[in-house]
Amino acid sequence: MLRGGKALLVLGLLLLLQLTVDPNHYVSRVLLLSCFSVMLAVSLNIINGYAGQFSIGHAGFYAVGAYTGASLSHFGREWMEASLGLASFPAWLADSAVLLAAVVAGSVAAAVAGFIVGLPSLRLRGDYLAIATLGFGELIRVIFINIDRVGGARGFSIAPINSIFWIGLFTVGIVWLSRNLLNSRQGRALQALRDDETAASVLGINITSYKVMAFVLSAAMAGCAGALYAHFDGYLQPDSFNFIRSIEIIIMVVLGGLGSTTGAVIAAVVLTVLPETLREFADYRMVIYSALLVICMLVRPQGLLGTSEFSWASLRSRGKETGGGLA
């Protein structure tokens, strides 16, 4: 889907934005925030949409990634500067190296957490799994509150590295990965076990490893988003990764359409940008979201887009064939 030419185009565009746009301008801040929402919603969609498991502790993985990335850049930067000679590099290169190291560390740590949560999920289904992931998310938050090295409940301040280029690149990368996963061998296996676990296992799909894979992959993506987010403001607080945050991500995935990456992206952007433009209705925001969630379940439980995806090919063939762009 994203071959040479398009990849270069994206890179060029992001570089241009990086060089010309002030990342701390209000509009770019809102758009960057929606990038985080997109990463979270798209990654959660792998567990909840593709694989049909139900996780409501996604903010936990996000927190693991954020705190790991932040700790690495806070406590490890000096070491990296000394041993890798980062100090002699230009500032943007040194910053990028630190940020990338933080992202890798955050993703790996979150993936490990995903593995740990994914394992018991083999024994649990449906709402039991949901409640176990909820417990995990809350537990993570309590643990960070109690680690004094990272500020505990007061929060954790680090040197911010706010980069449109990297945030944009990882957002595009995660969306691309998730979109390509859908029709890959692994993606089809996940959908098969979502639709009928027994039938899938009869067809030779290793349920255990695929469920764990969905958790690990999704957690790694959330961890990557977390590490980037940690450097966005340079300030973290355990309470910003609470149950409500997890629920917000679920609302995006569900309203967009469980199983649709396109839907997750659209819902994530809309639900992040909309409250900013409707500031005067801020008090009503969550009332409206929750009412929408309930109404959506009553009227259209498959979400706004169902499982359909947007693609350029179907857009081009529109008119020639019967199917539309969002068939």
Binding site: F54, I56, G126, D127, A130, I247, I250, V254, M286, V287, Y289, S290, A291, L292, L293, V294, M297, L298, P301
Partner: peptide
């Protein structure tokens, strides 16, 4: 799951 999501929605509401 539909029921569960609806329940979460009611709770938030």
């Amino acid at each position: 799951l539909t029921l569960l999501i609806a329940a979460i929605g009611v709770s938030l509401f």
